[in-house]
């Protein structure tokens, strides 16, 4: 397990840089994580990120883009616009969650 300092917060991260402890995340951190990967956070980005966090808390796993659409109500197309190319991974990274395990 590794500890890194991001925006002054000491957080546990995996070898790719994803946060590994749900409770170590906060929105200041998320803003920095988003900046790291070139995502500029708008209200809509935050809505998705907050929904992903809430869903993870309930389900114990990260929602796929499919679930983010059907359960979260965020259309696939919009996810690709807000988090270009690799929405599932980028959303998970900013939300401080593991990459989704599901295939669809």
């Amino acid at each position: 397990m590794s500890v890194a300092t991001i925006e002054g917060y000491e957080v546990h991260v995996n070898e790719e840089g994803f946060l590994t402890e749900y409770d170590e995340w906060n929105e200041t951190l998320a803003l920095k994580l988003a900046e790291n990967i070139g995502v500029e956070m708008t209200d809509r980005h935050w809505e998705i990120v907050r929904w992903l966090r809430a869903d993870f808390k309930e389900q114990g796993e990260t929602a796929t883009t499919r679930r983010t659409q059907t359960v979260g109500g965020f259309p696939t197309k919009e996810q690709f616009e807000l988090f270009p190319k690799k929405p599932a991974k980028k959303m998970a990274y900013i939300a401080g969650l593991p990459k989704p395990h599901g295939c669809v």
Binding site: M1, S2, V3, A4, T5, I6, H12, V13, E15, E16, G17, F18, N36, I37, P84, K85, K86, K89, K90, Y93
Partner: peptide, 16 residues
């Protein structure tokens, strides 16, 4: 469990 302090790694989403 041992922990080590590492520089903040940014995942390489490798769009390029």
């Amino acid at each position: 469990m041992s922990t080590q302090t590492v520089p903040a790694v940014v995942p390489n989403f490798d769009d390029e």
